[in-house]
């Protein structure tokens, strides 16, 4: 419909501009409009425009899902944080009261601290260890062993977090767990893996690293594949040893993968929920309670939707600030060939 309308206007404009010898102001205006319509029609017909339209059609599903599942909920969450709403009755506008209350909420500050510490250790474990495991796997000569190890490390990543948590809950039981059984066989005292505040936190980090390390290993393996072998050959000719090749070629050229992994790991770690929820329910005390757990309890336990939304907003800005900082700092240490 739109195309035919444009074509009609364009054709009318051409006739009008050709036939009119006397250029009255009205005629000139009409001629300009006609030229614009002709230009638009030409643009629509151009290859570039067709490509652009096809491109928009290609991204339409993603764009729609982004709008429906990300942008609209994010804006709704921002709006909700300004209201006192219990799901059942009409929301009351309270301005920034939820944020003021949040700043004085000791439990929120505790959960924020727990989340930050978890993010720090889990990111270090996942990204740091993942990189060295990838380098180790990549240096193996036998391709079958490389493929086996790659798969073995990746398998935990595809298992549901809840299943992983239940499995570790069984393995790490204090009195009857398999891990403590073998430790006691070695003469090591049983460890309260999930029942002491200190150990529960460590266990959760350990489980998170066990589950996610394969994903980061895979990213680093892909990064390693992209490093040209000529660089190593040249380094060998120059007499560079293994350590020099690692620190001067491998690690600098892995920094784009490292940069990507750090951002992904940090965002994921700040949103941690399932493993704590299943294994410790935030305890003992609040030792393993994270912001998302507290948020869930406030939203669906106490039905304080506005207050929970304000937590989500704070978490969103923390993650945003950290990501921006990383991107800014990334310019200084990430090497792109």
């Amino acid at each position: 419909m739109q195309y035919s309308a444009v074509r009609r206007i364009a054709q009318t404009g051409e006739r009008f501009s050709t036939l009119t010898s006397v250029r009255s102001p009205k005629a000139q205006e009409a001629a300009i409009l006609a030229r614009q319509a002709t230009a638009s029609w030409n643009w629509v017909n151009s290859l570039r425009a067709r490509e652009a339209i096809a491109g928009y059609f290609f991204i339409l599903p993603t764009l729609l899902s982004f709008l429906v599942f990300f942008l609209i909920p994010t804006i709704s969450g921002l709006g909700m944080s300004l209201f006192d709403w219990d799901f059942f009755s009409d929301p009351d506008y309270v301005g920034l009261d939820n944020f003021i209350e949040l700043s004085q909420d000791k439990l929120f500050l505790t959960t924020l601290k727990n989340t930050a510490l978890f993010a720090l250790f889990a990111t270090a474990g996942n990204v740091g260890l993942g990189m060295f495991i990838a380098i180790g796997i990549n240096s193996i000569k036998w391709s079958w062993l490389r493929a086996y190890l790659r798969t073995a490390y990746f398998i935990p990543f595809v298992i549901s977090t809840v299943v992983v948590a239940l499995m570790f809950g069984f393995l790490l039981q204090e009195s009857t767990g398999v891990v403590n059984y073998y430790l006691s066989r070695l003469g090591i005292q049983r460890i309260p893996w999930l029942s002491s505040s200190t150990w529960a936190f460590r266990s959760i980090v350990l489980i998170d690293v066990w589950k996610h390390i394969g994903f980061f290993t895979l990213i680093f393996l892909a990064g390693l594949q992209a490093i040209p072998s000529e660089l190593y050959e040249a380094a060998l000719v120059d007499g560079a040893g293994r350590r020099v090749r690692l620190t001067r070629i491998t690690i600098p050229l892995l920094t784009p993968s490292l940069f990507f992994s750090l951002i992904i790991a940090l965002i994921g770690a700040f949103q941690v929920f399932e493993s704590m929820y299943v294994l410790t329910n935030g305890g003992p005390g609040d030792a393993t309670r994270t912001v998302v757990m507290y948020l869930y309890r406030e939203a669906f336990g106490s039905f304080n939707m506005g207050y929970a939304a304000s937590m989500a907003v704070v978490l969103f800005f923390i993650i945003l600030a950290l990501t921006i900082t990383q991107v800014r700092l990334g310019d200084r240490w990430v090497f792109y060939r």
Partner: peptide, 20 residues
């Protein structure tokens, strides 16, 4: 009820862990 249960769990879990 849910709030009371959470308070109980928060502190009694620490007693059960011999931390309080």
């Amino acid at each position: 009820f849910a709030e009371l249960a959470e308070i109980h769990d928060r502190y009694m879990s620490q007693v059960w862990a011999n931390e309080m």
